[in-house]
Design a protein around this nucleic acid. Structure first.
Lengths: 266, 266
DNA sequence: GTTTCCATTTCGTCA
DNA sequence: TGACGAAGTGGAAAC
């Protein structure tokens, strides 16, 4: 493997002068790199922040995104989204890397006092990412299999506009009652029940049929139960996991998109 | 510097067997590490996902957090929050690292086919992180300096409970009218105006005084202007940046916390 | 471009 | 521990 096609080049414990030239070269060639070192971080933009010196992992990606990670925690302590412009310079403080974003104007500055290692990257990632069982996927699973909600249910419209917003699903029960479905992919709170009730009220003037509001969610918060009774709504438990399984069996997304487009005006 | 106190140990292009032992050791010693390599990723939990093979940066932190980053984009394509348990094993597929989270039960599996480099970490980060100009800072700035809103205004309560939720600030204007303040740190939309109107309505039954609702934000969305007129609300422009400047002058956070605690029941 | 809403949101606080 | 709201939220779709 030739040096130019190496996936990762490592420089350990470089002097800051050396580090500067390695980083400048990477930035110039639009290559990503990972720097692990002792640094301070300043941020000015929508808000302002100051991070005192410590050991961090700094990732600068080829698209101009920046992530500053502490040794613990999920989220970066500071960051910059893709599309940044960079400046590096030596100061008596150390080695500074500034990432500038326009619109909104935001500046992130990382000042390295010591660098333990630089990983220069030359990565290729063509892999497709598939995500299943978002709220939308739950909706699709119900359209594919309305009996998930109740036997004999027929879905008649998807994302129907009903002034306060959009009703997730509408349908007809086997007794011919209008069914309004609100989907939540996690434990439904009061807000979901209230929202559904508003939809039901908003639709009443437009139909002679009796209306049932059904809240579909894996669970409801315990204080929602009495509210459902008050508002005369029903609750049907349905987990995103079960929806994912159904979608895994029937990967007919194109048909679904067709339905979604054409059932709007039902 | 002794080997044991090295901040970062690098292993380049290890065989998967060697990589496995390095990673096992890191996990056992609760050390974080960064692996750059060619891998597939599977996730099962609140949702499900599959990521086809490609080059990625995988960070496993000492607190059991996992981040899988592609060569571009701000956010990790897959992740796991702190507190995971790990299993590693060799398969004919490659080297698998499973990160398991309980509650909710979620499993993230990274299967490496090739590893370009492993950075084993031994980092120390005691630096304090300061963030200015959050919404809470705006609130504090107004309490410290109510004339930011209008001369003669006196703040009487903070985060007062008012059934739909909590009113950011309440006060009395110099003409003796009750002032209800809703703060947004960015451009306020319809929702903010509606929320404020609800608070005003909710408070009316409890006072003889005339009530003014003031929306405080750097700006308002253009369709909110007529809504404000309809709802008889006022708008006072105020930027988080200006608030940050005021707080920088008066770093009396403790006094503020005291106020916040004791004005609840006004 | 702006607005709105979802997210494997995450992250805090508070009851 | 659950519930609720803010975030330098980010991101996508709709208008």
């Amino acid at each position: 493997m030739k040096k130019e096609t190496k996936h990762v080049s490592v420089v350990e414990k470089p002097l800051l002068e050396h580090a500067e030239s390695v980083i400048r070269k990477s930035l110039l060639e639009h290559r990503g790199f990972v720097v692990i070192g002792f640094c301070e971080v300043d941020y000015r933009g929508r808000a302002s922040s100051k991070l005192e010196a410590g050991d961090r992992i700094v990732i600068i990606k080829e698209d101009g995104a920046v992530l500053v990670h502490r040794p613990t925690e999920y989220s970066p302590v500071n960051w910059q989204p893709p599309g940044c412009l960079f400046e590096t310079r030596r100061t008596n403080e150390g080695l500074s890397i500034r990432a500038v974003r326009r619109k909104p104007r935001e500046v992130l500055e990382v000042i390295f006092k010591k660098i333990y290692v630089i990983n220069t990257l030359n990565l290729t990632d063509k892999g497709v990412f598939y995500l299943f069982a978002s709220e939308e996927d739950m909706q699709k699973a119900i359209v594919l299999n309305p009996s998930l909600i109740e036997p004999g249910l027929r879905i008649t419209s998807i994302e129907k506009k009903v002034e306060p917003g959009f009703v997730d699903l509408c349908g007809l029960s086997k007794e011919g009652r209008l069914v309004i479905i609100e989907i939540k992919r996690k434990t439904a709170g009061k807000d979901a029940a209230i929202q559904l009730a508003k939809y039901v009220e908003a639709i009443k003037p437009f139909t002679e049929r009796e209306i049932r509001g059904i809240l579909v969610a894996p669970d409801i918060a315990k204080d929602v139960q009495p509210l459902l009774a008050t508002l005369k709504l029903e609750f049907k438990p349905l987990s995103p996991k079960k929806c994912a399984e159904i979608l895994n069996k029937r990967r007919t997304v194109k048909i679904l998109d067709y339905l979604k487009t054409n059932m709007q005006n039902v």
